[in-house]
Nucleic acid binder design. Structure first.
Lengths: 184, 184
DNA sequence: TTGAGCATGTAATTGGTTACATGATTGT
DNA sequence: ACAATCATGTAACCAATTACATGCTCAA
């Protein structure tokens, strides 16, 4: 469960309220680890109970500003260096490929060409963000740029793969015939 | 929710019991869409209620063999061609990168070098599986090979990215200092 | 006769999403 | 006064994981 670590990581930089964290999640972390308002407030409660964060100060409108405790700081470091990252377990796009023998070749080709176009657009968008971040500069952006670069390379790889895949398709249209038929 | 579609896709090839499906999930689908025994039996119940699958025959030990209905077949086709695949939303490894300014350069380098090694091993393993599948042949393996190729390219890209990233690290060790400290 | 493998199901818990509910402050 | 935004919290629901629970069949 990395949500707790995402919160610890943000609080390491500066103390923040649930409301502040939500904005950061939506603006910066949305594409690597989305979280909802509901989740954040719940998790801040859990983190407080387990002593990893603490309410530093209370402000207007019931605002509670959280900060890391020493235990929270240690847990963040432990997670960063000692815990093996879990690769994503599920991939909707790849799951489909397993069943493409159900389609005829022209349907499969249409699908793969669309994947290539979408990946190309994604790549262009990420490059734009990347260049903007670079222009804005600042030493803190180093790791942001490294993260973005992964996205750029992933999009590029996906586009190339989809183009390659559509060339691998059998040239004759051969939708497999069902063995038997029944209406539920 | 793609589990239902994974089940439909497998049942399109041949009728199967929950037990059969579990084996196929563990052997073939584990890396793109894992599912547990519990999930499969529950989902087969839902699919039956909604008329997408039907019990074709019952065998020894209470075995129930499921097959697609016409509605199930239509739903599978609809999903394959009309529904945009959802890209994975969460990436544990990338989330870490956001917080790497908390580490000093040597810790970050160690981490990234390990990523590169792991990705390289992964790539080798997938190439081996790929070559074996190719040798075993059969027209049904076309899409299996396309899926595997994605994995190979992803691993390669990850390795290259991790190597590149470790070169981007600032040369001086500069762990950010905490602004303030408190024990919960 | 016994153990491996076949075969199904339910319960409890966790993590995530959507929706509901409420209210305070601040700038115009 | 009013709207925008700040700010927190809970409830219901869904998907996934782990654990619990039971029993049959077949081959050695």
């Amino acid at each position: 469960m990395s949500l707790r670590h995402a919160i610890l990581g943000l609080l390491y930089r500066r103390p923040a309220s649930g409301y502040d964290l939500l904005k950061t999640f939506n603006e910066s972390l949305a594409h690597v680890w989305p979280a909802t308002q509901s989740q954040l407030y719940t998790e801040l409660g859990h983190l407080t109970s387990s002593g990893l964060v603490v309410v530093r100060s209370e402000g207007p409108r019931g605002r509670k500003e959280y900060g890391l405790t020493e235990a929270g700081d240690a847990e963040l470091h432990h997670w960063l260096v000692d815990v093996e990252p879990e690769p994503p377990r599920r991939n909707d796009a790849l799951l489909r490929m397993f069943f493409f023998d159900r389609l005829d070749t022209s349907e499969a080709r249409t699908y793969l060409e669309k994947r290539a176009v979408v990946a190309g657009r994604q790549q262009a968008a990420l490059i734009a963000v990347s260049e903007q971040t670079e222009r804005d500069g600042g030493p803190l952006s180093t790791y942001g740029l490294i993260t973005l670069e992964f996205g750029v390379r992933l999009a590029e790889m996906t586009r190339e793969w989809a183009e390659w895949a559509s060339e691998q398709l059998p040239t004759i249209s051969r939708p497999e015939t069902r063995q038997d038929e029944e209406t539920g």
